[in-house]
Design a protein around this nucleic acid. Structure first.
Length: 564
RNA sequence: UGCCCGAUGGUGUAACUGGCAACACGUCUGACUCUGGAUCAGAAGAGUCUAGGUUCGAGUCCUAGUCGGGCAACCA
C-alpha cells in the first residue's frame, strides 16, 4: 500500500508526496527536499494561501527539508511593506518558520547578467513596439503569431539598447526585452515572452536602483534555481507556463539539478470568494471593516474571528491536494474548528437575548458562589466560582409559554436545571400591556444545589444563566456568512459578486456574561455554553469587553425547531 | 480552429505493480449526557463521464468521444 505512517493520522500519499518519495528513492536531489512559499506582497493572505503554506512548509517538515519564504516582488506597482509584514505575521501565526526570508528582488542583478548573456547568445532582443502591437502580433491561441520587425537586431544594438534601458534612457512602455523563442508555438507563453519592462517606479526594497523589472516567468524559475529549490509548487493556471519555466532554466545552466514546477488545484470554499482583487474591493468599498474583518476569508480575518492555527492546519491537511477543481464545504472548515476549540476553549456562561427570572423563594439579597467546570474535555482546566442570586437572566429561547412536544426547556409548571446551580420550576409569567413577557417567576429547590437532586429526580433540560446583579455587560458581534449564494461568482449579465452579499452578516448585540471573563486578553477563546465559541476582540476595553462569535455550536434543536 | 489539464456518493479525498470502490464532512436513526455540545453505535447514499476494446477480471491499461477548467497583461 502507498502509505506512510504519520503521527495522529494515517493517510495515503497525495500526488506531490508520491513524487517526492520517488525523487528520494531515485536520489534525484541527493536526498534534499526544498520548497518555498512565494507570495506577492500586494495583498493580505487568505485561506487559499494557507493551503499552500501548509503544503510547502508541511512537506519540508515531513521530509526533513527546508522551506523558504520568498516574496515575489517583481512588480513595484502594487507591492508594499505593509503586505510583507502581514504575510510574515500570518505564516508565523500558522506555526511555521521559514528557512530563509528572501525576495525575488535579491536576484535582480543576477537576472540582469543572465539577460545580457541571452542577448549575447542571440536568445533575447529589445522590442520597440508598444504593448498593443506586441499583443496583436502574438495572435490568438488558434493561430500562429507574427514575428516582431525588431526580432533580428544585431547583438551589439540589442546590448546597447538594453544597457540604456537600465540606465533609464527610455520611458515606460517604450521598450521591452523579449526572449527569442517561437512565435508559432501552440503555447502562447512561448511566443517570445517579455522578460523585462521599464517601470520608473520606486520599489519597496530596491528603491530607485532599478527602472527595469523582470516579469514573473523570468524571475520565478531562476529564483527557484538560485535557492536550490527542488519542488516548486504552484496552482493549476501556471501549468501552461511550465515549458517556459523549463526553457529558461535550460538556457542558464547545464547542471543536472533542476527545480521542478508542479501544479495543484487551488482551494475554493463555498459561500465565499478567494480572489485578491475582489477581497480588495470589499475592503476598499467598505463592505467590510478591513482586511482582518472577522467575516473575511483572510488569515488575519480568521484569526480575529477566533479560528485557531491548528484548526486551519488540520483542515489543510484533510482537504488533500489534487489537480482537479474543487469546492470545499465551509461546514468542513467549521468542523475542524469546533473539533479543536472543543478541546481547548474554556466554558463560560453568557446570555445574549435575556429574559429576567426571579426566584421567589430565594433569600433576598443573598449571593452564592457555585463551582463550575472550566472545560469538561480537559480536567486540567480546573473549576471557577460563578455567582448565583435571586434575580437571573436566561435566554429567551429557553422559555416557551406553550411548548410543543419536542421542546423540553422551561415552560409553565415545568422544572429544569440551571447549570451548576439549582433545579427551578416555572410558576408564573408576567407580561406588559402588549403581552410581551417581562419576567418569569420561579421557585428553586435548595436541595438541588450544584445541579443534582438527592431524590434522583430527572429534568430534561439544563439551561445556562447569569446573575443579573453580577453580570458583565459586554458587546457581542454575531457573524453570519458574508454571501447568501453558495457561489458568489454565479451572477447574471451586468451584475457582480456584491449582489450576493449578505446584508445581515454582522449583528451587534449587548450580552450579559458571568464576571470571570473580565480582563481576558484579545483572541482568548471561550465557549459560551450552549451558544457557541467566542473570542475576545482587540476592540475590547477595560470598560467594555467585546466578543466575536467564532462559530455556533452544532445545534440539533435548531434543526428540529426549523422543521416544525 | 490550436495547446495544456482534469472527470470516483451531495462535498472533498483514497483505492500497491488491474482483484468485491474506502475514509472524512454533510444528511438521517438511536444510545448516553448537568451544554439539544461532546462522545458512542448504526443507516441511507456512487458502481467510478460515455462508447468500444484488451483481460478470467478494468476506477486503474488502450482507442474514440463528451463534459468542465486553463492559456492570447509590459500582472502574479
Amino acid at each position: 500500500m502507498n502509505k506512510t505512517p504519520e503521527p495522529g493520522e494515517n493517510r495515503s500519499l497525495n500526488f506531490i508526496e508520491t513524487i517526492i518519495e520517488e525523487d528520494l528513492k531515485n536520489n534525484t536531489y541527493g536526498g534534499r527536499v526544498h520548497t518555498r512559499f512565494p507570495p506577492e506582497p500586494n495583498g493580505y493572505l487568505h485561506i487559499g494561501h494557507a493551503k499552500s503554506i501548509c503544503l510547502n512548509f508541511g512537506l519540508a517538515e515531513k521530509y526533513r527539508g527546508l522551506c523558504n519564504l520568498r516574496f515575489d516582488d517583481t512588480n513595484p506597482e502594487a507591492e508594499d511593506v505593509e503586505y510583507v509584514d502581514s504575510i510574515k505575521e500570518d505564516v508565523q501565526w500558522l506555526g511555521f518558520q521559514w528557512h530563509k526570508e528572501l525576495y525575488a528582488s535579491d536576484y535582480f542583478e543576477q537576472l540582469y547578467d543572465w539577460a545580457e548573456m541571452f542577448i549575447r547568445e542571440g536568445k533575447a532582443y529589445v522590442d520597440d513596439q508598444p504593448a498593443d502591437v506586441i499583443s496583436q502580433q502574438r495572435k490568438s491561441p488558434t493561430e500562429p503569431g507574427v514575428e516582431s520587425p525588431f526580432r533580428d537586431r544585431s547583438i551589439e544594438e540589442n546590448l546597447d539598447l538594453f544597457r540604456r534601458m537600465r540606465k533609464g534612457e527610455f520611458a515606460e512602455g517604450e521598450k521591452v526585452l523579449r526572449a527569442k523563442i517561437d512565435m508559432r508555438s501552440p503555447n502562447m507563453h512561448m511566443r517570445d515572452p517579455i522578460m523585462y519592462r521599464i517601470l520608473h517606479k520606486e520599489h519597496h526594497r530596491t528603491g530607485n536602483q532599478w527602472c527595469l523589472y523582470p516579469m514573473y516567468d523570468w524571475a520565478h524559475g531562476q529564483s527557484d534555481f538560485l535557492e536550490g529549490i527542488t519542488h516548486s509548487i504552484c496552482t493549476l493556471e501556471f501549468e501552461v507556463h511550465r515549458p517556459l519555466y523549463d526553457w529558461f532554466l535550460d538556457q542558464i545552466t547545464t547542471d543536472t539539478y533542476r527545480p521542478k514546477q508542479r501544479e495543484m488545484a487551488r482551494l475554493n470554499l463555498n459561500y465565499t470568494i478567494m480572489s485578491k482583487r475582489k477581497l480588495l474591493k470589499l475592503v476598499k468599498e467598505g463592505y467590510v471593516k478591513g482586511w482582518d474583518d472577522p467575516r473575511m476569508p483572510t488569515i488575519s480575518g480568521f484569526r480575529r474571528r477566533g479560528y485557531t492555527p491548528e484548526s486551519i492546519r488540520t483542515f489543510s491537511e484533510r482537504i488533500g491536494v489534487a489537480k482537479r477543481e474543487n469546492v470545499i464545504d465551509t461546514a468542513f472548515l467549521e468542523h475542524c474548528l469546533r473539533e479543536d476549540l472543543n478541546k481547548r476553549a474554556r466554558r463560560v456562561m453568557g446570555v445574549i437575548n435575556p429574559v429576567k427570572i426571579t426566584i421567589t423563594n430565594f433569600p433576598e439579597g443573598q449571593t452564592e458562589w457555585l463551582d463550575a467546570v472550566n472545560n469538561p474535555e480537559d480536567p486540567e482546566a480546573g473549576t471557577r466560582k460563578v455567582p448565583f442570586s435571586g434575580t437571573l437572566y436566561i435566554e429567551q429561547d429557553d422559555f416557551m409559554e406553550e411548548p410543543h412536544n419536542k421542546f423540553y426547556r422551561l415552560s409553565p409548571g415545568r422544572e429544569v436545571r440551571l447549570r451548576y446551580a439549582y433545579f427551578i420550576t416555572c410558576r408564573e409569567v408576567l407580561k406588559d400591556d402588549q403581552g410581551n413577557i417581562t419576567e418569569i417567576l420561579c421557585t428553586y429547590d435548595p436541595e438541588t444545589r450544584g445541579g443534582d437532586s438527592p431524590d434522583g429526580r430527572k429534568v430534561k433540560a439544563t439551561l445556562h444563566w447569569v446573575s443579573a446583579e453580577h453580570a458583565l455587560k459586554t458587546e457581542v458581534r454575531l457573524y453570519d456568512r458574508l454571501f447568501r449564494n453558495e457561489n458568489p461568482d454565479d451572477v447574471s449579465e451586468g451584475e457582480d459578486f456584491t449582489v450576493h452579499l449578505n446584508t445581515d452578516s454582522l449583528q451587534i448585540k449587548e450580552a450579559f456574561t458571568e464576571p470571570s471573563v473580565q480582563g481576558a486578553k484579545p483572541l482568548t477563546h471561550y465557549q459560551f455554553e450552549r451558544l457557541g465559541y467566542f473570542n475576545v476582540d482587540p476592540d475590547s476595553t477595560p470598560e467594555k469587553m467585546v466578543f466575536n462569535r467564532t462559530v455556533t455550536l452544532k445545534d440539533d434543536w435548531a434543526k428540529i425547531a426549523s422543521k416544525s
